[in-house]
């Protein structure tokens, strides 16, 4: 579904990714692991077209990537806290709405689709609450619903649980795995916690110094990703 091939990204002269190949299939939750500075977030940003790519290409279903095919979920959630949960989810549909019908409230069919997305993440009963009044974990689930309302084929989640407590983290990752399996989405999640990846991901990719050093079953040992090579003085 989502294929990244030969991706090279440089920040100035310094290469951050060296020809990285990663694929995510339909119905699969792929966790990308790695230490700080390993290039895992840059990989996600390259997939989302948020950083210029020096070499390599990104395809969705074998074809060129359409912006609306890829939905993002952010570490800092980025909901509009003062708006209702429902309005926040509806905003995911903005990319396919004409300007005229999106300025004065959302059309009924979009609101009903957004309700279905909220139902999907288990928060339909909170539709009219202010987004800011929900807990962090609930807010991240609303952000996932917003991503669903975009009707994507791929979901890219950038450290989606780094700001959440352990219970909420489990819930959000279980939700992402379920969406991959049941809705047939390709989900790529950059994670900081190998244990969470082992429990929820279908496959893990490990990055070290901008290269893929590990790709396979989620329950394998990933300690080598985080070892410090030079002795710390």
């Amino acid at each position: 579904m989502l294929a990244l091939s030969g991706i090279t990204v440089r920040y100035g002269e310094r290469p951050v990714l060296h020809g990285v190949d990663v694929t995510v299939s339909r119905g699969e939750l792929l966790a990308v692991l790695g230490a700080n500075g390993s290039g895992k977030s840059t990989l996600l940003r390259a997939a989302a077209d948020l950083v210029p790519v020096a070499a390599g290409q990104v395809t969705v279903d074998g074809g060129p990537r359409d912006r609306l095919d890829l939905a993002l979920v952010f570490q800092r959630i980025h909901l509009v806290r003062r708006r209702s949960v429902l309005d926040n989810v509806c905003a995911g549909a903005l990319g396919r709405l004409p300007l005229r019908s999106s300025l004065l409230g959302f059309p009924r069919e979009v609101r009903e689709e957004a309700m279905a997305c909220l139902e999907r993440v288990g928060l339909a009963d909170r539709a009219h609450d202010r987004a800011g009044s929900l807990s962090g974990g609930q807010q991240q689930r609303v952000a996932v619903a917003r991503a669903l309302c975009q009707r994507p084929r791929v979901v890219l989640a950038d450290e989606p649980v780094s700001a959440l407590d352990p219970a909420a983290s489990e819930q959000v990752l279980a939700l992402l795995a379920e969406l991959a399996h049941v809705e047939g989405l390709a989900v790529l999640a950059v994670l900081h916690q190998p244990a969470l990846a082992a429990r929820h991901a279908d496959r893990v990719v490990g990055l070290r110094d901008g290269r893929v050093v590990l790709d396979g079953r989620p329950d394998q040992s990933v300690d080598s990703l985080y070892q410090v090579l030079e002795p710390v003085s």
Partner: peptide, 21 residues
């Protein structure tokens, strides 16, 4: 800048980002 960034990534145009985020 977070919510505007989120809506831009969802394909919203400049006016939509201003109005909704």
């Amino acid at each position: 800048p977070g919510p505007p960034q989120a809506l831009r990534s969802a394909g919203a145009n400049r006016v939509q980002v201003a109005a909704h985020a």
